[in-house]
Design a binder for these strands. Structure first.
Length: 438
RNA sequence: GUGGGUGUAGCUCAGUUGGUUAGAGCACCAGGUUGUGGCCCUGGGGGCCGAGGGUUCGAAUCCCUUCACUCACCCCA
């Protein structure tokens, strides 16, 4: 016997969970499409060189990489952004701005833990070919709409701009090579706090007293981590053109929110947000939830220089990603995700083997009325057939025995209420359909 | 890559200072009820106690090794 097992960090999705995942994907897709995004897919396998060197040192280590039979070095995609960049460079004829969504698995050779897997789904939206900060704003509005639609309320979208952080770093004399590491330390503010960040910075850089004061006054200042602080933060990057540009972009994003009516409680400009990936160049954003502590559930930002790596012509781009498993984890924690659902509405029980032909006809009529119907295959005890329906969560059961046959009727049992009524097939169908609407 | 925790029935877990044939609840199957699930009652199937080695008259229990799972760090969705 072969021991049934699957690789660490990989999972089976049983029907109960799969129905929930499909529901989430459906909600996400609807919002994406309502903003004009179109579906796209790419192969799960890419040449290793396409992926390598894009995510930073840590990211590269987590790429699943191996040789194919021809000795070529290939890799499972690590995210959906790099494959998209490759696509855009491959098909320059795509009309821009190019807005696509992609819901697909990605693979990372990470050590699994709560809310983290080696194979997981991302739901990406990206807008390629525009520098407008309204595009960035749209992504964040969509983030808000999607999470609301799924039923979340306890979330906070953090927004910042790499240009601000960059300008600040340059102004403070941090050299180019150290900037990513500088960002990563800043980014830990939420986790390790002010003192933790300072300690890390002091280990890697020479932190002047004035830099420390500025970090305290602007980056870590609670007051300034609100949208009202945009004018205050301006002082931080005074005289740096890139900084001004970054500020204007954030103002544009803020304007989109107020135009769209995104309530202020769901977002904040947070100057301690930096994000780990190397390729971000402009506005960056991520969503955190307070209840289960599982990092971020969405994350993204502008990456104007990435497509240039695959093409002579650099193309501006911005995008964001929803982590499907993290959303499911939060729903589970909220007690919404645990229930095993079924799409099946009715089970037609088999009272006697001779009645199978009748059952098939009943089921056919019901299916033609757009109901999901299952027929039971063997004439086992009703007790058994009913408990089967109950275990599956099927809400209605059809029973047709000698009594019904002689009267030309059908019995419909409501499994949730424990009630049943004797009806004609037509009435039965409308009863079930009306109950669906409830 | 670094550190902690846990491995006993399908699942959640008991199992005393080492001592007969390893337990419970849930789930499953059968019956109580040959036209009715959930509640109740009765019975039943299920275990290489993660694996390998050692100590011992005797090991689920002690020691070593190893594997698996899990949580945290790093990083990330």
């Amino acid at each position: 016997m072969i021991i049934p097992q699957i690789p660490k960090g990989f999972r089976d999705f049983l029907p109960g969970k799969m129905n929930l995942r499909k529901k989430i994907i459906g909600a996400v897709t609807e919002v994406f499409e309502s903003f004009g995004f179109e579906p796209m897919d790419t192969p799960c396998l890419e040449y290793a060189e396409t992926l390598e060197g894009k995510y930073g040192e840590e990211g590269d280590r987590l790429i699943y990489k191996f040789q194919d039979r021809g000795g070529r070095s290939v890799a499972l995609r690590y995210d959906l952004t790099i494959p998209l960049s490759r696509v855009v460079a491959t098909y320059p004829e795509l009309t821009r701005p190019f807005k696509r969504y992609q819901i697909a698995p990605v693979w990372r050779a990470d050590k699994p833990q709560k809310g983290r897997f080696r194979e997981f789904y991302q739901c990406d939206i990206d807008i390629i070919g525009t520098e407008s900060a309204y595009a960035d704003g749209e992504l964040v509005i969509i983030t808000y709409l999607v999470l609301k639609k799924i039923g979340f309320d306890n979330f906070l979208i953090r927004i910042n701009n790499r240009k601000l952080l960059n300008a600040f770093a340059v102004k403070e004399g941090i050299n180019d090579r150290q900037v990513p590491s500088f960002f990563r330390s800043i980014d830990k503010y939420d986790k390790i706090g002010r003192d933790g960040v300072m300690k890390e910075l002091q280990n890697n850089f020479t932190v002047s007293k004035s830099l420390e004061t500025k970090l305290d006054d602007y980056i870590f200042s609670e007051e300034n981590r609100k949208q009202t602080g945009l004018s205050e933060i301006a002082k931080l990057v005074e005289g740096m053109p890139a900084g001004d540009e970054g500020l204007r972009e954030l103002e544009t994003i803020r304007d989109s929110f107020s135009a769209y009516g995104v309530p202020e409680k769901y977002y904040m400009f947070d100057f301690s947000l930096a994000r780990g990936l190397d390729y971000y160049t402009g506005p960056i954003f991520e969503t955190i939830v307070t209840e289960p502590r599982i990092g971020s559930i969405t994350g993204g930002g502008r990456y104007d220089n990435l497509i240039g790596l695959f093409s002579r012509n650099p193309v501006p781009a911005t995008g964001t990603s929803f982590g499907l498993e993290r959303i499911v984890t939060v729903l589970d924690e909220m007690g919404i995700g645990g229930s095993d659902g079924t799409m099946t509405r009715i089970l037609v029980t088999l009272f006697d083997a001779d009645l199978m032909a009748d059952n098939l006809r009943i089921a056919k009529t019901m299916r033609e009325a757009d109901l999901n119907v299952e027929v039971y295959f063997s004439p086992q005890k009703l007790k058994k057939q009913l408990s089967y329906a109950a275990n599956r969560g099927i809400p209605f059961v059809v029973i047709q025995g000698p009594d019904e046959i002689s009267q030309g009727t059908i019995t419909l049992r409501n499994m949730n209420k424990g009630t049943q009524e004797v009806l004609s097939l037509g009435d039965l169908i409308s009863t079930v359909k009306n109950s669906v609407l409830q």
